[in-house]
Design a protein around this nucleic acid. Sequence first.
DNA 1: GAGCTTGTTGTGCAAGTGTATAAATAGCCC
DNA 2: GGGCTATTTATACACTTGCACAACAAGCTC
Lengths: 223, 223
Amino acid sequence: MLDAADPAPMNTPSRRRFRREGEERRRQDLIEATLDSVAEHGLQGATLRTIALRAGVTAGLIRHYFPGKEELLQEAYAALMGRMTEQAKAALAIEDASPRQRLAAFVTANLNVPIIDARVFSLWTTFIGRAGADASLARAHREGYLGFRNEVEAVVAEVLAAERREPDASQLRHHAIAINAIIDGLWIEGCLAGDMFAPGELAAIGIKTVEAELGLAPEREDN
Amino acid sequence: MLDAADPAPMNTPSRRRFRREGEERRRQDLIEATLDSVAEHGLQGATLRTIALRAGVTAGLIRHYFPGKEELLQEAYAALMGRMTEQAKAALAIEDASPRQRLAAFVTANLNVPIIDARVFSLWTTFIGRAGADASLARAHREGYLGFRNEVEAVVAEVLAAERREPDASQLRHHAIAINAIIDGLWIEGCLAGDMFAPGELAAIGIKTVEAELGLAPEREDN
DNA sequence: GAGCTTGTTGTGCAAGTGTATAAATAGCCC
DNA sequence: GGGCTATTTATACACTTGCACAACAAGCTC
């Protein structure tokens, strides 16, 4: 049971067998393994050896694709951010829908899987927590946030225009900030304690709250 | 200028001088040093030596007050949570005010310093990020969150009662979840990019959004 | 298939980690 | 002031970490 590392019975010094993967494939695998490691045990658990093990290679290989651990983490964070904003924006791109429907679809998309996901949340917190200290991280976040908020602001403008309302720039900005906050806040609640909410409940609350913020007449119901 | 660590000119093997502080004081200092270290460099940077240096003692002393690093971190987290919920609830305790005023004061308090603070946010993210993996952390958070939400729900009930409204339990719950999300979301935006908002702007948006969610008539203004 | 390139492994190392423990001294009690 | 005790320092140790580098073999080219 002990020392089961040697398949050959004799003193074969045989190395581990391996395959040469394409460069892009390896980088992708390493980045994914990095995200997995960070999500599971935080930055602490993301050691080169852990990452390599998860990617099915040995630690030394990482240095062949990345100058150092720091760069690997940065690329992993960039990949994460890219995926998140891409998914969020995709929800806005539905065709043949009224502005109000598109806004509702946007809220719904952001308050269900796969956006509501404990793994993504864990990654977000570990990286974003360092934004206060790391300037490049802070800038990356700010750009992503502003991009997101501008998307929201654009839809809000369409929704209000369809309602014959004419908000000025300041009001639009306030609406966008508020709606962004509603989505973020509900997203956190869902990620941290998804089992406390019925399926679709967060999305329903989100839509109702957003429409109240914009002063849209509710479909029906009182109080 | 270099090697100024030895006050005695000769080969004195003199140990570092020290003072015996009270037990409670030392524990408090160590916990504070821990929070500072975590806030500044994350869990990675919070080594026993770093913490001890910040607390003005040597690393070995920590083991005299805490069984191990794990326990020190747990106590530090508990202290942080306690302080946060205490501050938040204190804002609700103002006397001689209408329910609506108390709610507004609550929102305002949570969207200004010292609640909006990059250091606290950094601490929150580093600890909460591990809630997905660490069960005790998750439970601690859930209790704090539910306590907070129940406070909100109680004020909401008072506000609506003062308006002669009679929401049922489900509606109350939805309002509390939504308001909680609004505060959390705006809190994050303020912590991450406080300089993007004018002083008091977040609080103003928060109050407006919360009152819209509850269907309270705005003081004045349109659109 | 021989040979070459380079992706990949394995080992080594210095720095740093948490923990254990012995030595020293600060400050109280008499 | 002398002696005791527990706080505090200092050192040691086993272990992990990121990184450097030499050896190796996978798979292409001819």
